[in-house]
Design a binder for these strands. Structure first.
Length: 420
DNA sequence: TCTGGGGTCCTAGGACCC
DNA sequence: TCTGGGGTCCTAGGACCC
């Protein structure tokens, strides 16, 4: 079996390009919520030295000088295009693992490396034809090697035409000895520093290291990486959908908030979002956390706190969660701070008992269940937030946030530059 | 003026039990 | 004075990912 890792090129930027061909070959970036920092860049933008995650105010001169096209993120659009890409990929194998919004692993049923390469080239053609999204494919006997191959395909798009294979052992030896250890999937900053201090600098060197020694240094994860680099698969394909174990909803505010009432609105909105997601996957939550914080970037008094409550029997009812969340918020709120962010976490998620006749105790009453079903149905049919709790309010803080999220940024950006 | 959001897995250490 | 050993469960925090 050969594993393919498909990764969309500069995915969010490519989505913007798919609907605006005029952006082809221009530098494009997409910004985070609140238009805070850069979360996607095309090759042209990378070539200008725009780093991943850089705050946008630090590069505004660069943007103006090189006429970089700037977009707020539009996750509804990216989600749609992602689904179409995955749908197209599923035509190539029944064994597809959607790994993230822009990545998927495919177990290819092929006889040899050559067949795998030809199939991958067809994927590149078809996905682009159907969706307008360019992809790269990495091939290998394990997931980690497929990831490495994908990096190489991306780095040398011209020569590889988007497909690179590490199936052949000789190619592996050559390429791994040129591949920096810190670029391996699963090796982060801390682990890379540890490895380098032991003079392990390339993927090849890591693959030749003593497994026990690496396990001591980096825990069991490190040992798995060594095995995978040596073509011994220990990360299996995840083919079935697993419900999430936690659901987090949080946002930075457009402007700092001081009042408890405003924080309450924000929290109620986070609960609403998270509870919808919770019900969509058929789960109930076993605990609830609320947190608030000031901006760590400001030279002002800092405060961070969180509070957690166990929900023994589990619930997925929005108003119950809002009520509990308010109690938690009140217990940690302190006046006199500029709050910049808040959020909630639903944890210990478990599948809801199938029906009221269940032997197990169910916290939510049939009446509440019915109410939630109706609420979700209406919002699904008529659009998000058609029906919502009064506690969610109509606060301009919130208006502003959701507007920024969906609205194109180009106009606002040019206004910003002109008024400067 | 202006610095994202949402996840998973693993480990260490404390509480508790016999 | 001397103060076991082993097991489980839970949680906080670290590290990593996209």
């Amino acid at each position: 079996m050969i594993i393919a890792l498909v990764d969309c090129n500069s995915f969010y930027c490519s989505c913007e390009r798919a609907f605006n061909p005029g952006l082809q070959s221009l530098p494009v970036v997409v910004l985070s919520n609140n238009d805070g920092c850069v979360i996607a860049r095309t090759d042209e933008a990378k070539a200008l030295g725009i780093a991943m995650g850089v705050p946008v105010f630090k590069i505004k001169d660069l943007i103006k000088k090189h006429n970089v096209k700037v977009f707020s993120s539009n996750f509804a659009l990216y989600g749609d295009l992602s689904a179409r890409v995955m749908q197209t990929l599923s035509e190539f194998t029944p064994e597809l693992e959607v790994y993230s919004i822009d990545e998927a692993f495919l177990a290819l049923n092929v006889k040899n490396e050559q067949q795998a390469i030809e199939l991958s080239q067809e994927m590149v053609r078809r996905v682009y034809q159907y969706t307008g999204i360019p992809i790269c494919v990495g091939l290998g006997p394990t997931k980690v090697l497929a990831k490495v191959a994908n990096r190489i395909a991306k780095k040398h798009k011209k020569q590889t035409k988007g497909v690179f294979s590490l199936v052949h052992p000789e190619t592996r030896r050559l390429q791994l000895s040129r591949f920096p250890v810190e670029d391996i999937w699963g090796v982060g900053r801390k682990s890379a520093a540890k490895l380098q201090s032991h003079n392990i600098k390339t993927a090849w060197q890591l693959s030749q290291s003593n497994e026990k020694f690496i396990q001591k240094l980096l825990s069991i994860q490190g040992r798995r990486i060594v095995k995978e680099l040596n073509a011994q698969a220990c990360l299996s394909m995840d083919l079935i959908f697993e419900p999430q174990k936690n659901i987090l909803s949080s946002r930075s505010f457009g402007k700092p908030i001081q009042e408890l009432e405003d924080l309450k609105e924000a929290v109620a909105n986070h609960i609403t979002t998270a509870a919808e997601k919770l019900r969509r996957q058929g789960s109930v939550a076993g605990f609830l956390s609320v947190f608030i914080r000031t901006s760590p970037f400001k030279n002002a008094p800092q405060y961070f706190n969180s509070a957690t409550l166990s929900l023994e029997t589990g619930t997925c009812v929005t108003h119950k969660l809002i009520h509990k969340a308010f109690l938690l918020l009140e217990s940690i709120y302190k006046p006199g701070f500029d709050y910049k962010k808040c959020g909630i976490l639903l944890g210990d998620l478990r599948q809801k008992a199938p029906n009221q006749m269940s032997f197990f105790e169910q916290a939510d009453s049939p009446k509440d269940e019915k109410l939630m079903q109706t609420l979700d149905l209406i919002n699904k049919h008529y659009g998000k937030n058609t029906l919502k709790y009064a506690a969610c309010g109509n606060n301009p803080f919130w208006r502003m946030l959701s507007q920024m999220k969906t609205k194109g940024f180009t106009t606002r950006w040019s206004e910003l530059i002109e008024t400067k």
